[in-house]
Design a binder for these strands. Sequence first.
DNA 1: CTGACTTTGTGCAAACGTTCACAAGGGCGT
DNA 2: ACGCCCTTGTGAACGTTTGCACAAAGTCAG
Lengths: 264, 264
Amino acid sequence: MSRRSAPAHGSHGIPEATVARLPVYLRALYALADRGIATVSSEELAASAGVNSAKLRKDLSHLGSYGTRGVGYDVEYLVYQVSRELGLTQDWPVVIVGAGNLGRALANYGGFASRGFRIAALLDCDSGVVGTQIARHTVRSAADIEAVVQEQAVSIGVIATPAPSAQDVCDRLVAAGVTSILNFAPIVLSVPSGVDVRKVDLSIELQILAFHAQRRALAGVPSPGEREWQERRARRTGGREPAETGPPLALGGDTGVEAQAVGT
Amino acid sequence: MSRRSAPAHGSHGIPEATVARLPVYLRALYALADRGIATVSSEELAASAGVNSAKLRKDLSHLGSYGTRGVGYDVEYLVYQVSRELGLTQDWPVVIVGAGNLGRALANYGGFASRGFRIAALLDCDSGVVGTQIARHTVRSAADIEAVVQEQAVSIGVIATPAPSAQDVCDRLVAAGVTSILNFAPIVLSVPSGVDVRKVDLSIELQILAFHAQRRALAGVPSPGEREWQERRARRTGGREPAETGPPLALGGDTGVEAQAVGT
DNA sequence: CTGACTTTGTGCAAACGTTCACAAGGGCGT
DNA sequence: ACGCCCTTGTGAACGTTTGCACAAAGTCAG
């Protein structure tokens, strides 16, 4: 999906599919660390991340041998190694273009800052928005793209504009020196080779869900595994680490360290 | 990614990878239709969608033989067939839980309605937001989840809450009868088998970009194909369908029907 | 120090996805 | 009606990803 010459792990190593899962593992590791857990087995970590444990071990083995046989992985050490591999030990200035609802949501999203992504600037071309404060940032004019990118050595750009402006913004980002782009606009961006584009399309995901929902509706509806689910839910609500002193939260469980249902 | 018993195209047909691309083709087809193009070859459509043409043909062949050899595909007919396969010819009521910036962005997103997704309700548990108007919808209390789902026969739920509430919201949606969930919260949801979950994680995409950016920075930087790019850009800006009467847009090109750079 | 037990790391085979290359098939000019 | 040319649809080769199953390697009790 927008790799240029990808022999997957031809030259240096890590398969693309693995790279895509590392952030998930990292999130699970942070959650474990927050709960004060120092060591974790591949089985447990895999459950937290919602993947098969063999897959997790193979994935981690691409980074090196950071586990201890018979014991598991040291959470803190693994956090460091995964972060390092993903390039999160350095600071990544990010410019967000488009300060509509989506741009605003992105600017306010805590998950950015906590992973080393610093918002270098929030830009918009609507003069009614330029100058306002959003999440501690003053919205600047989209005319400043080149200035911002060069001044702050930005290499990652986020496009959160309406579709018609997206290609133009993209061109300007690229011309200014940005080589990684995260595109939220529902169009296919045209970029020179050497520039990495990833897209997130809200409606595409919904359409995929609709496809499966329709499949289910047409085929016999096998009822959403009633018994099994009751059981799992009970386990999650009640049996939260017997000797654990977790404070009861007002709404909802903890930070999501349970396994995704994978079924058979 | 959260399939239950997925032999991919074991029983009825279409591989998962193909399903994930159909919405992209559909978008490209709509863009072509808007430009008044009645017929398109696999080569052109593939370019518009940013994929290999052989892949496109194989993907479409899973739906049936809707092309004409020597000619191409009829745009309108293909739009219909793809829509039908994706289940977009029916109306899908969707409930959005969480009316923060993200929920607001989703509610305002035009790409929903235009694909048959109707917002059944917008819910939040913050009493300061409940009752306000967002995109023609009055925000209702999150306590109404069960009522809304049952009254309007909602089968798709969108979770746009902060992470701590997500699992609880998910449980309630599922208990109320929702079987498809789109999750924006950065946690792995636990659901019974039979429920389909897709996740969109903004920071994960950024982390993947960071990984590649770091790779590029470490290896020799081969300069983003200067010459080739200038050429492509010129072609895009100037050579817009010679005899085409497209009105000049204030900002940016058209709806993105150009090829993604794929490189070698 | 030894031996039982646990968990990692990995060889291998099967499943899945992508791409090439071309035969089959249909339009169109003559 | 014929044959040329263009484009689809697909068989086959190749690369990637997954998951099993197990040997290697470490811990820990006695």
